[in-house]
Design a binder for these strands. Structure first.
Lengths: 144, 144
DNA sequence: TGACGTCCCATGAAATCCCATGTTATTCCA
DNA sequence: TGGAATAACATGGGATTTCATGGGACGTCA
């Protein structure tokens, strides 16, 4: 599977539309669904992007615990599947971010796409800059 | 199979009618039956929605169990299939919830549809908010 | 006949599609 | 290797369609 690498900044227009970087797009489209799944991160004010195929394999794992057992699988899948938003690309490769997604990440005019290997994140530029500084500090002294 | 993802809130009118979110609708209509199967959840005050095709595969799963175990599966399946309510869409994609269904979930004016992968749930808004909080708590520290 | 459920039509808001354009990256040829 | 031609990409705005929702008409069952 193709990886999400490097960082891109794109504009968010008045309608909430934003271009998914072309290199990410080609990594996202593995199956029938021409789009991306975005989930508000529970740890940071950012969005996380996955391919639909990733969601399906997760779903299969959940289904192996059957639907009738007294497990908490419902509780777990609610935060994951319930908060996930599937967004299809338009002809030019854009998606329309919902108000909830925009609000969660504090995004207004610009959005930073950060590749993280098998997934990627979307940040508000200032929040990302701050976060990036912190992570550089942590890495000080480490070999590249 | 298409997954049920994300969360939608729709109104329930005086007649008990409610629009099934269009994205769920398209995931529901795989076979001949133009509708959805709703079942009162036995563990929470909510309704669970399945595609008719899913009911069939569940039924097969029950049958296989019966061959090997003299368990309570008859009782379980009776409670499950016996309480299931198949509802067809009208021309605009709505279904009419029965009084029993409304009462079980405590739904009056609004209904929250929550995607859980292969199924979805319908909640009364306040009850959902509470449940959602629990779910987030449970997932604390998990990735994403 | 009265309550209830189903069918049909109307409407406003919101999401999606479609076309146009500037800018950047890439190719191709001399 | 320069430099022009071409393609890919991001972006803007308008037009169109979809979707959710409300209300009325009709039929039916008790």
């Amino acid at each position: 599977m193709a990886l999400f690498l490097s960082t891109h900044t794109n504009k968010v227009d008045a309608k909430g539309r934003v271009s998914i970087p072309a290199v990410f797009r080609s990594a996202l489209v593995q199956d029938a669904f021409q789009g991306v799944v975005l989930i508000p991160s529970r740890r940071v004010p950012a969005l996380e992007g996955f391919a639909m195929g990733m969601m399906q394999s997760l779903s299969e794992r959940f289904d192996r615990f059957d639907l009738f057992s007294a497990s908490d699988s419902d509780l777990e899948s609610m935060a994951f599947f319930g908060d996930a938003v599937p967004l299809s690309f338009d002809e030019t490769g854009r998606v329309g971010l919902t108000k909830e997604l925009l609000a969660h990440a504090g995004i207004t005019e610009n959005a930073v796409f950060v590749g993280l290997g098998t997934k990627f994140q979307i940040w508000e530029p200032k929040a990302y800059a701050k976060r990036h500084q912190e992570s550089l500090k942590k890495m000080q002294g480490t070999a590249t």
